[in-house]
Design a binder for these strands. Structure first.
Lengths: 132, 132
DNA sequence: TTTATACCCGACTAAATTAGTCTGAATTAT
DNA sequence: ATAATTCAGACTAATTTAGTCGGGTATAAA
């Protein structure tokens, strides 16, 4: 419960690793996978997702790899999570689905409140804040 | 990812329901299960966990049920989650386990930062704030 | 222009977690 | 006594996450 996925962890590790290099430098998947002992294929997927999401640039061919493209201080954690895991239903709201049944139920259910608080927190947190 | 479990949802629904009654009133599991269309057995378990955790009082026998015992404004969400789901490893920290490998790795890893921020947020949020 | 290196992509399997069920108790008002 | 209710834990089913595999595409360099 309330866990990040490995893909998100791996993505953060990869970014952090790349941040410690010159901006021109290119890092390939294997390098990161071996250094941090992450399954290569899974890390590869994760990096592909970041490339699609415009967070990193992919360089094809021999001596290729990835480098950071986006300004990480301008990407908030919700955006980041969603680029990697797809739309976040932070939780299923039990009330929303059949609200008519329950006259005592406020529109803004307990679960929605938690949801909002979490979203809010992560929206005000940049990727850079975490990885640097 | 970053989801609450159903047990937690059910617990919040149950508390909310009980809050709208006189403090003397007792609510049985069936009443809540039927009203919100929650699987009886699972809700039962959840209420038992809250009873063990001192959040509600159980009244045995016919006409028995539960009533709120604790001051909900004094219970923070971390305590609440842990009473229901057990100790929360909000996420597995990849770095912590074999930190020696990575010389570039700070002690406080990216994942730990998120962890701390989440814990902090939930520690400053009372159950009452959510359910009322 | 061939070759080797590296990214790309989707389908598949395996593992872990969560949700829900079942069975049989213990407690107590009537 | 009996029926209503909580208590407890083992069990199965469903869902989600993690990880694997096979076959592609792009491109630097020999």
């Amino acid at each position: 419960m309330l866990k990040l996925t490995r893909k998100v962890e791996y993505a953060l590790i990869a970014l952090r690793h790349m941040q410690n290099k010159e901006s021109r430098a290119v890092t390939n998947t294997k390098e990161i996978a071996e250094m941090y002992d992450i399954p290569l294929e899974l890390l590869a997927k994760t990096l592909q997702l970041m490339a699609r999401g415009g967070i990193v640039d992919a360089v094809h061919g021999p001596n290729g790899g990835y480098k950071i493209k986006a300004k990480l201080e301008n990407i908030n954690m919700i955006e980041f999570f969603e680029k990697i895991e797809g739309p976040l239903g932070l939780m299923d709201c039990y009330f929303d689905s059949d609200c008519t049944q329950i006259s005592a139920c406020n529109i803004r259910s307990p679960i929605q409140k938690i949801n909002d608080n979490m979203r809010n927190m992560f929206e005000n947190m940049s990727v850079d804040e975490i990885t640097q």
